[in-house]
Amino acid sequence: MTENPYLPRRAKIESIKQETTGERIIKTFAVVIEDQAYRERFQHKPGQCAMLGINGVGESMISIASSPTNKEFLNFSVMKLGKVTSAIHELEAGDLITIRGPYGNNFPLDEWYQKNIITIGGGIGQAPLRSIIQYVLDKKGEFGGLDIIYGARTTADLCYREDHFQTEQSVFWQRRNVRVHLSIDVPEAGWDRFVGVVPDNLLRLKPSPENAIAITCGPPVMIKFVIKNLLALGFKDEQIYTTLENRMKCGIGKCGRCNVGSFYVCKDGPVFSYARLKNLPEKG
């Protein structure tokens, strides 16, 4: 009999970083799979997810927020919401967690050679985008420019803040055509960057669709308007990518609940090009 796909493996939490202090708390966990064979087999690609869990509590599907170029650990940014994520937030560095995966499809990086990459993220939606951002930064020679457009409700809700600030201010990256455009929804003292929702920031920045790929992830309503604005800026359906999320239990296309049209988000997603997404009857 083949391997049991429901059997999770143990992984150790190396470090934990609290990303946000706003209404919704997000922590980023760096984990290392204990079993060496499984660790070597766990070869993810940007865009993929994995099932994190605690035995006796349950499992949750979480995007992998680090790039495969990082061989040291895997990053997961977890927002404290339900039973499982709340329990994960209780854990400390050195504790054990369970993992199985990686699941789902990934960004078609082979097709994006030498293209300009634009990521448009909102809130926790930056997590899956972080895997591609890190990948592009690590393999800069394979891509053109990189524009990171990211916003959250308040500064307290911005994920990966220091990373973004560093990249933003780095002359090294500026010379290599890497630009960061942060925004918050409501004005705050000391904030000198854009104030307003992410789709508006996108319209203001007017990235060129030429030789570009735009990837967006965030709340459903943000995705909707980002896509609308991208189309208005002249992006073609094939140039727009998004990652979806739905409630998931099995992660392997059997338990049924995450379908969008005839696709299971866990297995056939989470990455959808707008060309594919727009033909689906219901959009998550």
């Binding site: 035995n55 349950g58 499992e59 239990k249 099995c250 059997k254 049924g256 609940r257």
Partner: peptide, 16 residues
């Protein structure tokens, strides 16, 4: 065929 997966603890037994 749709199903749910839940962890349950009853009387010292814990199962998925």
């Amino acid at each position: 065929h749709c199903f749910d997966i839940q962890d349950e603890r009853v009387r010292g037994r814990a199962n998925r």
